[in-house]
Design a protein around this nucleic acid. Sequence first.
DNA 1: TTTAGCACTCGGGGAAACGGAGTGCTAAAC
DNA 2: GTTTAGCACTCCGTTTCCCCGAGTGCTAAA
Lengths: 354, 354
Amino acid sequence: MEMTERKKRILRAIVESYIATAEPVGSKAVAQLAGLDVSSATIRNEMADLTEMGLLEQPHTSAGRIPSATGYRLYVNELMGEHQLSMQETQRINDALEMKIEELDRVIDRAGKVLSKISDYPVFSMTEVKDIVTVRRYDLLMVEENAFIAVVMTDTSVVKNKIIRIPDGLSEPQLQMLSTILNSSFTGLSREQMAQALEKMADHSTPGAFRLISMVVEFAIEVLGELRRQTVHTAGITQLLEHPEYKSLDKAKPLMRFLSDDETAQLPIPFDGSQNMNILIGPENVNEAFRDTSVVMASYDIGDNMRGVIGVVGPTRMDYAKVTARLSYFADSLTRMFGKGELPPPASKDDFEA
Amino acid sequence: MEMTERKKRILRAIVESYIATAEPVGSKAVAQLAGLDVSSATIRNEMADLTEMGLLEQPHTSAGRIPSATGYRLYVNELMGEHQLSMQETQRINDALEMKIEELDRVIDRAGKVLSKISDYPVFSMTEVKDIVTVRRYDLLMVEENAFIAVVMTDTSVVKNKIIRIPDGLSEPQLQMLSTILNSSFTGLSREQMAQALEKMADHSTPGAFRLISMVVEFAIEVLGELRRQTVHTAGITQLLEHPEYKSLDKAKPLMRFLSDDETAQLPIPFDGSQNMNILIGPENVNEAFRDTSVVMASYDIGDNMRGVIGVVGPTRMDYAKVTARLSYFADSLTRMFGKGELPPPASKDDFEA
DNA sequence: TTTAGCACTCGGGGAAACGGAGTGCTAAAC
DNA sequence: GTTTAGCACTCCGTTTCCCCGAGTGCTAAA
């Protein structure tokens, strides 16, 4: 059976009606919506064909049709129109992304919340580091007799600092010396290499000096570790409940539980890096909890060495056109923002020591 | 009508049974549970009294009784036994709080998640600054020709940094000079005073120097602003759905919506600072969304100048004994952790610049 | 004051009945 | 060959009804 133009129009009408109303679509309704000047009986025949082709499904004998996963897939690939963002929408996104100086992690978090609000669906976001990050340089700042601030800067220009307390006190020249050692022996190394170098140093240096060095180096190792750690954030999980397919709690709970479990369960959602936008429809998701759920993801760049993925989670009956449009604009904005960018970059930040 | 000892035992039995099962409690069940050697008929009489006194309620004529808000209140104030934490529980809390160096805000966030997991209820947490925070000192570190790192340390020993780019380049002595000006004229001031001082300086200094100064000072102002801003985090909102009173979505949604709305709606939950532990039962909550909900909150200290409040949200049928025990241990641990503390303090951290 | 006995109330749950939307098929019309 | 009108049929969601049982409140006896 071949896919005539008319069948496509009918499929499209059904998908879009179902997206809008969440109700199975009957032949009569299609007759109107598709703008084809034929009777409902004709439509019925076509719909029977489409069902046979696996593009539509019937919840039960005497209900209208709903799109199947493959039906959605065809729609997304071929039928879906470009959704134009209104000025208001782009404005809204831009405003929302106008963030104050914040730390990377928090920017990601905020971005997720914003997107979730914009899209009316839950959102997850994660980051990953492309290559190995190393320390480019150390700076040590005396604070008082028995404390100094260690400032660590990576080759990706991330700067972190920590107050280090030393019971015994330390003179300015000693600090200078320490700084020299750190900058000469503990830069440009991977975490493992740093640990090794530290171990080696343990033998031929005074215990006092070694303790100081190791405190700073360990901090540096943690910083690098933190950067490499793939973090997952989720936002707006509650929004699921606003959609009728999740009004039976049995449907909603497994998914919500899965999404809430950030940190712990790394979201095992594969992202195909060869494309900027990934769409997974229903059973295309490997994960059990996502069987009746679609995921639309986009990636963006964070500087040169990191990549972020941000995705929208919703029922298969998702407004793909709208979501992809918004998401892709959103991801582009993030890339721009993190780039040399017009938008203020997520500048440096912070620290705390009680 | 007076509150006899027997009435108390009956009330207690009802509260605890209802907490455990979420089912109205009948006279027969009470007869067994309360350990009083009387018949159900006697209990019935007593229960009628308790109902008249407003301590119990009847969902409908021929159901058992459930505690009213005042019933819970009496229970919490007088009847509730001390719940002992098991070794496992304290262990679990301690383990969970063993956090890596992290920024304050994130520690709070994590703590909320942990507590939520431990208590099976949603948790919110917020921080507030007691007094005004000022900048204690500035350090400027040359990175390259046209960029330096500004390190700002507050009188509460919070350290934050930011990379500042300068198109024109800068020499080491110039940087030195800049640092001197900042440390002499922009320390110990409130945000408003800093803004004023900056304005005043605009007139009698060269435009180039002024631009640099203002970039650093504006950063400092942001840092102070960020510290003072009262932030609210929530965690584990989904857990609500695990409790039978919220299995009808109509009940759950308003509350969940309210809780998800962190950032935006500052949680308007009053905390009585004269006590470490606050319990608000059902209608005692001013807020509409919390009418059928109880909140148990505890405060803890973050260093000398800040205070945090962390609270558990659940149905009025909450296991108050368990929750208060865990919460108070939790809050104590946090205080200890943020204090000079045995547990590692949330050390300094961080920064990012693309 | 406590207890046994008993009639009464009321909500929850299951069975049965109803209505309506939508289908698939057939036969006629184009 | 394709489209259309007509019609019997299916099946779901809803409503109605009825029954059951848990629990009460009252009365009268212990």
